[in-house]
Design a protein around this nucleic acid. Structure first.
Lengths: 227, 227
DNA sequence: GATGATTTGTACGTATGTATA
DNA sequence: ATATACATACGTACAAATCAT
């Protein structure tokens, strides 16, 4: 691999090409979020360097970055591992996540434009068919879109960045456990409450509905988690 | 300087000594938060390396870490600057900060122990004397303690970490502007509402009171900010 | 627009600390 | 407990990009 050039990025020569470190950070982060690298797995610098065909220097910088995001943990002189947390702290993570999503719903109720509200309503309406067909994969995809459109509807990039970062951390633990079952229709119903309160512009109700929704999700998944 | 030894840390030989990178990260972060390094200032690697008597390698790792926290911005091949943001984004930052503090107040109302509530009440009572004496420095110190005790009272380390990180970022902009004037007594009154609602265990009221308090603070400071 | 100076980006070597037999 | 193996931490050298002239 050439030092600074990115093979997949030759289109816009004047656009600041993404550095190797950023690329490495993304790829390792993706592996963690997608469950390729599970919590507790040790990340050796030379192994990563060989795998990506670079020296250890950019690897170390990428790991420093990931350390700051909380996806990996670095113990001085003892290497880096994918972050592994106990049950208590995981519950805190879910609680914080639920509160952040509640904020997003709150702000969305206050600031979503009519067009955004309309799009949200349509998105939600599309979910009933998937529930009835028990199409879990499609529902999961729609669920993502649903939450993302609310995040965007909050019109606050800083808050959205917090939520995205938090979501990656939570996702990294989802794979260490079983899938959650039988929640499709109840999830859709909970979404319905959120949509109703956002559309009617009731921030407190929307926040409350979203919080309850996430708390339910949190309990359902946390109960399966290890340690 | 020796590679891994920390001159100021010779007491506990078995404690994992903090690496140079961590030390550098802390010191640069402190300089940014305390206003020694103002937004927009360029951070040159060699200059920092000379200043701290180390090579560029640990400097670069520390800067990567700070980049992830949002305190500095790194543009590929173009160096690192202390993060500088426009008015719009700053308002988002204040809004997010206010919502996070509101969450903390909410959880504190739900989870603070009687002892913690008692300590909070006493802390708040101590503020009236300072307001009357117009002792701004002491009031600011008490204000910190007040908010910190609420953060701790939320009993959620993940949320607290978010708030601390956010607070550092906000603080880095406080120094680029004038001091806020004449808010001592109104601040104390707003605190009073928060305390009342936390003590009575009303999460929604506590969140609302805290949010209003922070929104006031945000408006007051944001209106003085540059760009 | 080209050239030299400055700065960032990456590779690599060596020392130090940690784990294991 | 000591020695050996191995991974990490930092420093140094070189390459590439940016900036100033």
């Amino acid at each position: 691999m050439k030092p600074t050039a990115n093979p997949a990025d030759v289109s816009h020569p004047r656009m600041p090409r993404t550095s190797i470190v950023e690329e490495l950070g993304r790829r390792v982060a993706d592996d963690i979020v997608e469950g390729v690298l599970l919590p507790g797995v040790r990340l050796e610098e030379v192994a990563l360097a060989d795998r990506f065909g670079v020296s250890r220097t950019p690897i170390r910088e990428a790991l420093r970055y990931l350390e700051a995001t909380g996806l990996v943990e670095k113990r001085p002189n003892r290497g880096v591992v994918v972050t592994r947390i106990g049950r208590e702290r995981l519950l805190m993570l879910f609680e914080a996540m639920a509160e952040l999503e509640a904020i997003a719903a709150r702000l969305a109720a206050l600031k979503m434009t009519p067009a955004e509200k309309d799009a949200l309503a349509r998105l939600h309406e599309g979910s009933f068919g998937l529930v009835h067909a028990d199409d879990r994969a499609s529902y999961e995809e729609l669920n993502r879109s649903f939450h993302e459109s609310i995040h965007r509807g909050a019109h606050n990039d800083e808050l959205m960045a917090l939520i995205v970062a938090m979501h990656r951390r939570v996702a990294s633990f989802r794979h260490a456990q079983f899938a959650v079952l039988g929640r499709l229709s109840s999830s859709a119903n909970e979404h319905g409450r959120v949509v109703r309160d956002i559309l009617s512009g009731d921030p407190d109700a929307a926040a409350s509905a979203m919080r309850d929704h996430l708390v339910t999700v949190g309990d359902a998944t946390a109960s399966y988690l290890l340690v």
